[in-house]
Design a protein around this nucleic acid. Sequence first.
RNA 1: GGCGGCGUAGCUCAGUCGGUAAGAGCGCUCGACUCAUAAUCGAGAGGUCGGCAGUUCAAGUCUGCCCGCCGCUACCA
Length: 548
Amino acid sequence: MTSKKVLVAVAWPYAQGPLHLGHIAGAYLPPDIYARYRRAKGDDVLMVSGSDVHGTPITVKADELGVSPADIVGKYHPEFLTYWDDLDIEFDLFTTTGTDTHRRVVQDFFLKLLDNGYLYTDTSEQFYDEKEGRFLPDRYVEGTCPNCEYPHARGDQCDNCGKTLDPIDLIDPRSKFSGTRPVLRETEHYYWKLSEFNEPLLEWLNSREGWRPHVLNFAIGMVTEGLHDRAFTRDLEWGVPLPVDDLGPGKSIYVWWEAVMGYLSAPQEWAEAQGTPDAWKAWWEDPDAESYYFVGKDNIPFHAIYWPALLMGHGGLNLPTDVPANQYVTFGGKKASKSMGVGRPLSWYLDRFETDGLRYAIAQNLPETNDTDLDDDEIARRINEELVATWGNLVNRVVSMTGRYFDGVVQQHGDLAPEDEAALARAAATVVDTGALLDDVKLRGGVARAMQGAQEANAYLSDMAPWTVAKTDLPRAGTILWVASQMIVSAAVSLWPYMPTTSEAVLEAFGVSTADGVAWRAPTVAAGTTLGELPPLFSKVELDDEDS
RNA sequence: GGCGGCGUAGCUCAGUCGGUAAGAGCGCUCGACUCAUAAUCGAGAGGUCGGCAGUUCAAGUCUGCCCGCCGCUACCA
């Protein structure tokens, strides 16, 4: 098997507020699991993301707090970095859209689209807040709904009757910023000929294989309805400025088009930092390179439609291999989101659960095909019933018996019984089967299959009863424990993408070095190995009543 | 309103191209075992697959309608 270049592209969070467990489950843990697997397989993985510093919500929040957008970013970007550290999520680079490299890449991209004939200028009328001196996004115009006369309708939609609105139709419009009545003012913008990509996009989407059905169906449905040209620029100071000056000052590239270009700029920033400025091309220009975009389902349009269309317009760059978008994690049926304020801060979970335990519980409940419910009791149950009892206890009992009967030294196995051969075959199958599921980005199925390996080892021990055999035939007990050890290290490898810390501890204790990384194959525990010190892998979790 | 998705055992969820008597984990009941963090192993009970109608030799799996929940609806992300 040859090594592949794999770009693991992770959704860029707004540096606007703390992240919740829903974000981790939806977009941040899955790519880490997948990237670890591909690395273990021997592939050359580049995992990048960063903070989106230009979103409108950031400027709004900054206005509300009376600080600069940079202050908001300065608070949350470092906070994100601590999340990754706490959760063992390893990026090759987690940057921001505020870097010089990003600006350069975005501006070059703009010029390329312009050069290829996909951008043109046009004028339109937009609401303008004269007091604030700024144009207003639809959402920041309020007024009376022309449909139901609800007095606090937003420019994009009325919360009362649910009707989609155009801000121009609002009765008695007012600016959400200043409360004054906005005026219509002509503004000139660059527009993107998105409509020209309907057919190529449809053709491309229809030829995708192995994508999650909900992702493909949604994208195809949207393109089939027909995409229209869209403005490429905005009347905003906070953003990446245009590389041309024919529109005058005060214009930025629309944050969404600019943010997805981070997938292109971050690898370049990474390459520059490595001292090999052209290294990024191996992931972007080599047609054999793969790219996986890990996002929540709300981001499907941007990663399965708009970004591919931008890449088509640019030319010479790889389109996404897959966009394994996740559904939502709900808490007691309620979506976790910053805006709704549902769900607790990550620190709450980190204070109560070990990292690997939390990673495991989330992985077992990943919303890959449906919205999935996850609560504290479920996390605790996963840890107590599955990690402590099934996996941790398995390791513990084998280490304990090896210590008791053989002073902790793994024995040279004698003749293998059919049951032993079968057990060893199952150990190998655990690694192979888990890998097959991970190849399909079925992370939830993968972790369940890996844990099955631990259950099989428990069943093998139960059948062989080495504690009984040891009384009459010590060498035979040594063989049984060796076989069980093989099953343990195979399970440890299979679980490594999910729980790197504890898996590495197990492998090291059984004499399998992880200094050069973990290799995706069933390792061999050598006879004569003295099992290392290994405290219990996991501790039982007890949630206080007040926690629930 | 439009588009899309979901509704499968007490709980959380799987169910590829429609096809042998509907699955997993947990929980529950019973049994076995005692090396192990009272952990483990085995067996069993438990579902008219949201409702109604239709297509088909055959539907959880396709079609229509209804009920409930959710997302998107484009310059909001």
